[in-house]
């Protein structure tokens, strides 16, 4: 018996080592780096303590980034989780025929399969002020006065990037919710129908409570995703115009790779880690409570 208990350790050892070397060690190393002044092409390190953190807190661009990440999270919750839930309920309802269900599910899901860079490049062209589809469409509708350089106008840029992500991921979240809805026992609905419940009543009293666990999970996924954001912004605006679309990810990249301040970049990375880590803790706690 005893021997058996120990052999399992041997089996998890490779994976454990792998995770320690490639995940945990870098996290602590990164925190250590954030205490130094250093760049990528010299060996000269100077210890600066927590001064990078103090400078970050004093930097207005940090707050722009934080604000943009939060905006991203709010919009993603409304559209991906909120609207995604609406679509899922609609696709599961009797209003949509069986064949159409499959068709729409695939159509909505498809964008999430395309690489982010490809989507970002595509939207870069859609938003182009001269040859872009969006301005062309506005012209067609006779709304020429609304035309603008979507990604270069500081009033529209961040919303244009956010809109792109909603287009890409609403379908993904919708499919996750649809799977959860399909797990709800059918007899609940039958019982409700016998009691004369309308579709809306069924949605609010059976479907939504039934997928609560998945709603929490998808909310957390989208919020964490919103704080880990990088590619979407890097490809479309690069943080511009005038830093108005910086997010924490691009802010970190800018410090580390454009300004040769690896230590400062590491400090930003630590902040991103703290934000996403607390969100994950929250997720674990909430989903545990849900089970109980």
């Amino acid at each position: 018996m005893r021997k058996k208990n120990k052999t399992y350790l041997l089996y998890i050892l490779p994976a454990l080592l792998f995770i320690i070397i490639f995940v945990y060690v870098p996290i602590f190393q990164n925190f250590y780096f954030s205490l130094f002044n250093m760049n990528s092409y010299t060996d000269k390190w100077t210890f600066v303590g927590l001064s990078h953190y103090l400078n970050i807190v004093k930097d207005p661009i940090f707050y722009t980034a934080l604000k943009n990440n939060t905006l991203y999270a709010v919009f993603s919750l409304i559209f991906q989780v909120g609207f995604g839930l609406f679509l899922a309920i609609l696709l599961d309802s009797k209003f949509v025929g069986k064949k159409l269900k499959v068709l729409f599910r695939n159509i909505y899901f498809l964008p999430s399969l395309i690489s982010i860079t490809a989507v970002a490049l595509m939207f870069y062209f859609i938003y182009n002020p001269n040859i872009g589809m969006l301005n062309g469409f506005l012209d067609m509708l006779g709304l020429g006065q609304w035309k603008t350089a979507w990604l270069a106008n500081p009033n529209t840029a961040i919303y244009s990037v956010i809109a792109m992500s909603q287009w890409q991921y609403t379908g993904y979240i919708m499919v996750l919710l649809l799977v959860a809805i399909q797990k709800i026992p059918k007899d609940l609905y039958e019982a409700a129908e016998i009691d004369g419940a309308s579709e809306i009543q069924k949605a609010f009293h059976i479907t939504i409570p039934g997928v609560k666990g998945m709603l929490v999970a998808t909310s957390i996924i989208t919020v964490i995703g919103s704080f880990k954001l990088f590619t979407e912004v890097y490809v479309t605006t690069g943080g511009g115009p005038y830093n108005t679309t910086q997010v924490l990810g691009t802010y970190m990249y800018r410090s580390a790779f454009l300004f040769d301040e690896m230590g400062y970049g590491s400090a930003v990375a630590v902040i991103i880690f703290i934000i996403t880590f607390t969100t994950s803790l929250l997720q674990i706690k909430l989903s545990n409570r849900n089970k109980g």
Partner: peptide, 11 residues
């Protein structure tokens, strides 16, 4: 031209 900051040099 319009939209200077939205166009690449090549555009």
């Amino acid at each position: 031209n319009d939209f200077v900051n939205a166009l690449t040099h090549d555009d």
